[in-house]
Design a protein around this nucleic acid. Structure first.
Lengths: 185, 185
DNA sequence: CACTTATATGCAATTAGTTGCATATTTATA
DNA sequence: TATAAATATGCAACTAATTGCATATAAGTG
């Protein structure tokens, strides 16, 4: 189970509350591991029981108390072991592709509309990724060094989005014009 | 929930038993929707209760009875409606990327070994996809026409695998030689 | 002043998927 | 002739993730 390890990775860099982690999942690591706040709170609770993390309650005037979690020694050990282990590529489950696979002539318009929707979504993500990339190249070599591995995963995200857009646009073209591909992919 | 609809797509083409469907999930649709036999049997049971499918028991000499499922009219309606609906792109959850993201200098060798393992896996899948693609181009135009939409999804599969391999090889090179990317992705 | 957004945490119920096991026969292989 | 692989279906327990709800305050906006 990798939500646990994704959380350990984040806490290993910097302690934080469930709320903080939820925000951080929206950025960096969230490009390839998504989690909702419910999942994160539940997981932190379990991980506290397993002694992988510990927390201090910070009282705040008015607002609810913040539970600031930190990784424990045991958590660091577990993380180091996990990183060394082999992973299977994740299973692919993509409903859009089932739809294209199953499309009948009468579905043509709906499929094209759906391809267009997905093009917009992926273009948006691509643009946001490319902005982060620009920041990386703008940074001085010290910061680049520190962020190298993160940036390598960002490159993967950029290519993933770009590849989607290319396929979506080509497929839209072929369906719209009732054409067949003439060359291999 | 799309396992349900993936099953409906398959049964809409041809009736079959849970076992048949398990085999079929290993091919075509299985490139983008994976399901184990346990999931399929459980799902078929539910779908029978929902009247989306029906089955006839075929006695076989010696072997256990085959339950041959077929899509019902209601199932066909549900499928037609589902195809017209919008889908969100699936959430990405890829543990390998967490590992690269989190890698420390002492993890270098383990990460490179892991990248190599994944290169082999994706190369194998790519080769198998490309064989199916070759079959498509060998077929006459009538068969091509019938298989057009399936082939479009296969093209996506091919590019997905190729893109992975490119990223994995580039990343391996950059880590092995302690280099930084010099150009954007 | 009302409304929205952000901060901050959590429970309960449900759905979806995985893991491990169990059974029983036929056919192909060493 | 023993063994493995393919055929065929299923239960039970568990883990992971989603959905919907609930609470409470502060800060910013129209």
């Amino acid at each position: 189970m990798s939500l646990k390890h994704a959380i350990l990775v984040l806490l290993d860099r910097e302690p934080g509350s469930g709320y903080d982690l939820t925000q951080r999942f929206g950025k960096g690591i969230g490009h390839f591991w998504q989690a909702s706040h419910q999942q994160i709170y539940q997981q932190l609770k379990k991980m506290d029981e397993e002694k992988l993390v510990s927390f201090k309650t910070e009282a705040q005037s008015g607002k609810p108390d913040r539970k600031v979690y930190a990784i424990t020694n045991q958590g660091q050990k577990a993380l180091a072991i996990w990183i060394q282990q082999a992973e299977k590529p994740p299973v692919v489950r993509d409903a859009l592709l089932i739809k294209v696979f199953a499309a009948k002539p009468e579905d043509k318009d709906a499929i094209i509309a759906e391809l267009n929707r997905h093009i917009l979504i992926h273009e948006k993500t691509l643009t946001s990724h490319q902005q982060l990339e620009a920041d990386f190249f703008k940074a001085d070599s010290k910061l680049q060094q520190a962020a190298k591995f993160q940036y390598l995963t960002l490159r993967r995200g950029i290519r993933y989005e770009r590849e989607w857009i290319e396929w979506l646009e080509e497929t839209r073209h072929l369906i719209e014009n009732n054409e067949f591909p003439t060359t291999p992919a």
